Amino acid sequence: MPELAEATAAIIAAGQRLDRLGWVPATAGNISVRLRDGTVAITRSGGHKGFLDADGVIRVGLDGGPLREGDRPSAETGLHCGIYRRFPEAGAVLHGHSVPVTVLSRRLGGSIRLESYELLKAFPGLATHAAAVELPIFDNDQDIPRLQAVVEARWAGEDAVLPGYLLRGHGIYVWGADMPQALMRLEAVEFMLRCELEVRRLP
């Protein structure tokens, strides 16, 4: 796991990439990295992720509380920390608000089925496109501890948990062992969701 300076640089670069792709408009989204000491570096609340600097990244504990007086983490920090608490291998978490994610999550039920895509290989345990997964969709909730409890209940009932989920009408969470893996997974899922959106536009 990285130290704070290395994590901050990775978060800034990720924010610029997600901004170029149109996945973190205005103040949307947040980005985090688990640090070597077990704490979490995460984007400060209210900032544009495409224009981050070092001051836009703060440290929080695994309970989501800021470690420096005056720092204000995102309201959704608890969802990042829930991922880190549940998955010791998780080293980076990305949360974005793309158009496909927002539209599809508003129109579908409790999951979206992704099947026969080459990029399914971005998910762990899938070595071929000849596979199908159900990516969970949770109803959004401003009560973050309550929402996290719903997510954890779903995780507890599944043998293999996909490293990602959608919030209805809101956005996507994807994680990986480090920032490169998290970015790769997010790009793969976004591509598949964009394809699903296009398919639904066909007559």
Rank of each mutant, 00 (worst) to 15 (best):
Y165T: 06
R36M: 10
G22N: 12
D141F: 00
D159G: 12
A75H: 06
G70A: 09
C81A: 10
T39L: 06
D178M: 09
I172F: 06
G15V: 04
E187A: 05
L183I: 12
A188N: 04
S98D: 11
G164H: 10
G29N: 10
A132K: 12
P73T: 09
S111A: 14
A122K: 08
D178V: 01
V151D: 04
I112L: 12
D53K: 11
R185P: 08
A132W: 08
V150F: 00
P180R: 03
L62M: 13
D139G: 06
L202S: 07
R168K: 14
D63C: 08
V103G: 13
E118R: 15
V151W: 06
C195K: 07
V189T: 08
A156L: 02
P145Y: 01
T128R: 13
R34W: 04
P203S: 05
D141I: 00
Y117R: 11
Y173N: 01
L114P: 11
L94A: 05
M1S: 08
V24G: 08
R106W: 10
V151E: 06
G64E: 00
L135T: 03
M179H: 02
S45C: 13
E3K: 06
D159A: 15
A7W: 02
L193F: 04
D55I: 01
V174R: 01
G91T: 11
M179Q: 02
T43D: 10
L21V: 02
I137D: 03
E158L: 11
S116P: 00
P180V: 05
Y165L: 10
L104F: 11
S98H: 12
G22E: 07
L35H: 12
R44D: 12
V33W: 02
G110L: 09
Y84L: 05
L94H: 11
L67Q: 14
R106M: 14
I137P: 07
I11D: 00
P73A: 13
R185H: 12
A92K: 10
Q142P: 00
A131W: 07
V40D: 05
P163G: 08
S32R: 10
A92Q: 09
G78K: 05
G50K: 04
P203A: 12
G46R: 10
L18K: 00
A149C: 00
